[in-house]
Simulated assay, not measured.
Amino acid sequence: MPTRPVLLYDGDCGFCTTAVRLAERLVRPRCATVPWQYADLTALGVTRERAGYEVLWVTPTGAVHGGAQAVAKALLSAGGAWPVVGASLTLPPLRWAAAGLYRLVAANRHRLPGGTAACAAPGPDLAPTRHTPQDTP
C-alpha cells in the first residue's frame, strides 16, 4: 500500500490529464497523481473497470473514493481554502449535485477542450456494480 493517498486518473484522456496537471499547479493536493494505466491496481485494491470508469482517490489504508468524492478528497488534502470547498462537496445536497455534474462531465469529456475520441468514457455496461461504504451517500 502507498504511504500517501493516490489519485488515479485516465492517462489516455487529454481532458483528464490536463485537469490533473491544472489541479497539481493550482490546488496542490497532497497525493501522488498516477494514470491508472501505469498503476499497480491490484496493490491498490482497484479493478481495471472501475479505474476506467472514474477518477479514484485511494488512501494509504486502502479506502477507495470515486468520482466527485475523489475530487472532494483531493481538495480536502490541499492547503488554503480548498479544504472548505472539498468539505462542502461531501455534504448533501452539494454532494448529490457534484455527483451529477461529475457524471455529466465524464460522459462528455471527449467533447471538452483537450478531449479526443479516446477520452470517451465506458458505457453503463462497464460501470462498477459494487461500491464500497465510502462511496455511498
Rank of each mutant, 00 (worst) to 15 (best):
P2E: 02
P2Q: 08
R4V: 11
R4I: 08
P5C: 10
V6D: 15
V6K: 03
L7G: 08
L7E: 12
L8A: 15
D10V: 10
G11P: 13
C13S: 10
F15W: 10
C16V: 02
T17W: 02
L22D: 05
L22H: 10
A23Y: 00
E24Q: 13
E24G: 10
R25H: 15
L26I: 13
V27C: 12
R28V: 01
R28A: 05
P29Y: 10
C31W: 07
A32I: 05
V34Q: 12
V34W: 11
P35D: 05
W36T: 00
W36N: 02
A39W: 05
D40G: 04
L41W: 14
L41E: 12
L41P: 01
A43H: 11
L44F: 03
G45C: 05
G45N: 04
V46K: 12
T47I: 02
E49N: 04
E49P: 00
R50L: 02
A51C: 08
G52F: 14
G52W: 13
L56I: 06
W57C: 01
T59W: 14
G62C: 10
A63Q: 11
G67S: 06
G67K: 01
G67P: 01
A70V: 00
V71F: 00
A72T: 08
L75H: 14
S77A: 09
A78F: 00
A78W: 00
V85Y: 13
G86P: 09
A87P: 11
A87I: 03
S88I: 09
L89N: 11
L91Q: 14
L91S: 07
P93R: 00
P93D: 04
W96M: 13
A99T: 14
L104K: 10
L104Q: 15
V105T: 10
A107C: 07
N108T: 02
R109V: 07
R109N: 06
R111S: 11
L112F: 09
L112D: 01
G115Q: 12
G115D: 03
C119G: 09
A121N: 06
P122Y: 15
G123R: 05
G123I: 08
G123A: 06
L126G: 06
A127V: 00
A127Q: 08
P128Y: 08
P128V: 15
T129I: 07
R130C: 04
H131C: 13
T132G: 05
T132D: 05
P133W: 14
Q134H: 13
D135Y: 03
T136F: 10
